[in-house]
Nucleic acid binder design. Sequence first.
RNA 1: GGAGAGGUGGCAGAGUGGUCGAAUGCGCACGCUUGGAAAGCGUGUGUAGGGUUAAACCUACCGAGGGUUCGAAUCCCUCCCUCUCCGCCA
Length: 423
Amino acid sequence: MLDPKLLRESPDLVRAAIVKKHSDVDVDAVIAIDDRWRTLITEVENSRAKQKAANGEMAKLPKGSPEFIAKVQEMKAVSAEVKEKDALLKETEIKWKQALMTLPNLPHESVPEGRFEEDNVVLSHHGDHEAEFPHAVSHWEIHDFEKLFDFGRGAKVTGAGFPFFVGEGSRLVRALLNFFLEENSQKGYTEVSPPIMVNAESATATGQLPDKEGQMYETLEQLYAVPTAEVPLTNFFREEIIDESALPVQRCAYTPCFRREAGSYGKDVRGLNRLHQFDKVELLKWVHPSQSYVELDKLRGDAESLLQKLELPYRVLLMCSGDMGFTQTKQYDLEVWSAGQKRWLEVSSCSNFEAFQARRAQIRYRNAETGKPELLHTLNGSGLAVPRVLAALLENNLQADGRVKLPAALVPYFGKEYVSFSG
RNA sequence: GGAGAGGUGGCAGAGUGGUCGAAUGCGCACGCUUGGAAAGCGUGUGUAGGGUUAAACCUACCGAGGGUUCGAAUCCCUCCCUCUCCGCCA
């Protein structure tokens, strides 16, 4: 959510940012309802002040006295007036909040203007994705692939996009998760195992609701299966005030992630490319507002270092204003080279939300100088998502004999150098 | 799931219809005192919204939401959470 004061004081700034974001939100409609709300709240508060003043007088009058009775009669009218106006105010307030929720976050000045995927800026390449990968094939074409990654039985038991990971496939997932968690812990991210179901308040605070309702699985109890650990992790400090000296707070969490992804099709969803349930380790930072862009680059660096240790060629994208998410001010994507499919796969998205989530979630720090609570900034990024990293590892490192050679960093976690599909 | 108890400021804990944003204690901050400290004494100490150049000022908030009333922390209803006991269970 944006600061309503920004909307009042600098509407042009908001309008310009909305244009840059290629959003079609009606900023002036939001301003109009904000005006209406302010008028109403002032009226209601004035009437309440009258009530309160009368209350003080009545307390001093003898209970059954004529003056007292007269005052009761007089105040009945005021009471009715308050009731009526208050109902109108509440109604308006709901609309006001809904209207404010429709405004996306404003892109940072360093974000390139653009509308589509091809407007994203490639900042850098790492590793040699143009090298020879002599045995690379799309991972689902690897001989006996289904022995370790059983999509057929997953479809039977649950549905498409819910594979079983079997034997060395499962072991490989575990090795990657342990590797990610261990590396992140060493970089100062405290490990957390959060709940993987969240309530509507939490999903609203991070921006999944109401904007992306169709993304999540929902239960009868109105709980949502998390689409990312970002949701429970960010909400850990919801409605809390953190000591300024504790910033930045850094945490990481592994969770399965659940996404409905309604409407996707084609090569994007083959094999491990896109699943309804997948494993991911998420990095999260709560930072002082003055530090959030410095911290964002550090966060991205931390995610990158994982790819470097896994010896996977990757590139860094700076997302353009129109292709960024609803809640972000700036976003980098890390894409790994998948030699078999000959395409880039997104494995991490590192974002600054500034105070957008913090305002919805009411997460603040206490300014040591003024003693006042102020909204902090939240950042997050994947570190990393398992299935696509897995896809690239399998494809890029496939040997002539059908085995997959693992990078040195992963060997201690997997327990041996090669993944075998023979059984 | 069943039975009972309870949710008040940073914490503890009063308050059962009116002057209560809320006694008191602790904590915290500042000042006095002291060679310095402790003790003691004094003053202050929540959050949010509106309003203002800034203030003043106004309003709301006693788990959440409704209701009764001229007026609700206090009475009524619904929900949530915590604790104790019982049942069930990895």
